[in-house]
Design a protein around this nucleic acid. Structure first.
Lengths: 219, 219
DNA sequence: ATAAAAGCGAGTGTATACATAGTCGGGATT
DNA sequence: AATCCCGACTATGTATACACTCGCTTTTAT
């Protein structure tokens, strides 16, 4: 995590609120009143408003006129829509990475992903090392596709996906399987096979969605 | 256009600046200093900062720390990247619209698009009626796909595309051809044929990109 | 008793004043 | 002559005060 001490107040407010929303500490429907939140975070209304503006632009909150901004809800229909867009973007991104990416980068990631079950054995209930590895695969794909607009579209999606992830039970079995699916994607990129990379991504996303729907528990 | 008189100052600043950038009245590299722009638009720095934040989030400006925010440049590589993402999103959107859309809505749009050359004959140098019609086709597709995240991704792209459009020469010949291509997309959606809708969109986007590259004049 | 209107209160929208950081120019030193 | 350092200025970042809108409650009239 970043040190929140030496950054601008608006940035601090943005990251704190975003994490609170993504981690479901601030539940959907919660009203984020400006005075209340600015006092809670120990800063003034001006930087807080900037943070709320960014959150609303991302879709994590929406402004309810007259009552301030409220935390956006995520329904099962939203999850379907999110994964529909995710499949559109990430399948093509994987194919482009297979065409344009540096094989050596993905070869290294592939090796790490094959060893991922070792990370899951470690005594880290938040699976920090595992998610950091998957995040590095995402970043490598972002860099490989050489398309800042596509990369930006995927980045804005990931915020919502992290939020959805918390709806599902991240048991060791699913994470081990997911690591193998990620390894398959990396392998296809190393091989420079766009169609295989796309297919591997499709498989992974469908399994992820199925798992989320199977283990979903209303909060 | 909307009446800019009775809206919030921040909204006024946002729309004015966005239009100035998209219409190339504010050229890439222009520094938007806060005091200078707030005085020009007749409002204070607070709502102006909010507007600049939204513009930077959309990618129309970027913050150069210490020197304020500057209008983002668009290179030919950017156009390639924009159209790559555009093809990913709009092809799938057209296919989804063919599956999920109301045929009657697109039948009406198809009829209008076949008559579009009449609009181009009118003495409107800005082609306002024509672009409004194409905009209604975009909105109809947005509504038909029933996926707010995909629709949002396409909307954020369109801002940049309007800006790119101003780089090319919008002669009557190209617009007539473009109208026919749009009509073909609408026709495929009416027929409920996803693959045809996708193909028609691919053809349209490739012809648009070729035309932009052929007539591009550095400013 | 119900509906409509007016008044009150809470909270957002805007302006302005102040703090702070970063850059540019000038001067001195090597 | 070139580079480094210092200082001042300019522009951003933040805080606070004020105004206005909108929602809610209360009261009054039909």
């Amino acid at each position: 995590m970043y040190t929140l001490a030496f950054m601008r107040a608006s940035e601090r407010a943005y990251r704190t609120l975003r994490e609170d929303i993504v981690e479901w500490r601030l539940l959907p429907g919660t009203v984020l009143a400006e005075v209340e939140q600015s006092e809670r975070l120990g800063l003034s209304r001006t930087p807080l408003r900037e943070a709320l503006g960014r959150l609303s632009a991302e879709g994590l909150t929406q402004t309810a006129r007259g009552r301030g901004v409220v935390v956006t809800d995520i329904s099962l229909e939203d999850v379907d829509e999110l994964f529909e867009l995710r499949e559109i973007l990430e399948c093509r991104a994987a194919a482009l990475a297979a065409q344009r990416g540096e094989a050596s980068v993905f070869a290294a990631l592939h090796a790490e992903l094959r060893d991922a079950p070792l990370l899951l054995g470690a005594a880290d209930p938040t699976r920090h090392a595992y998610y950091a590895l998957v995040g590095r695969l995402d970043e490598a794909i972002d860099a490989a596709i050489a398309n800042s607009y596509l990369a930006q579209a995927m980045r804005s999606l990931r915020v919502h996906l992290v939020r959805v992830r918390r709806l599902a039970a991240d048991d060791d079995g699913r994470l081990t399987a997911a690591a193998a699916e990620h390894a398959a994607i990396a392998e296809a990129i190393v091989a420079g096979n766009p169609r295989l990379a796309e297919a591997a991504t499709t498989v992974h996303l469908h399994r992820s969605l199925s798992h989320i729907k199977a283990t979903h528990t209303p909060h």
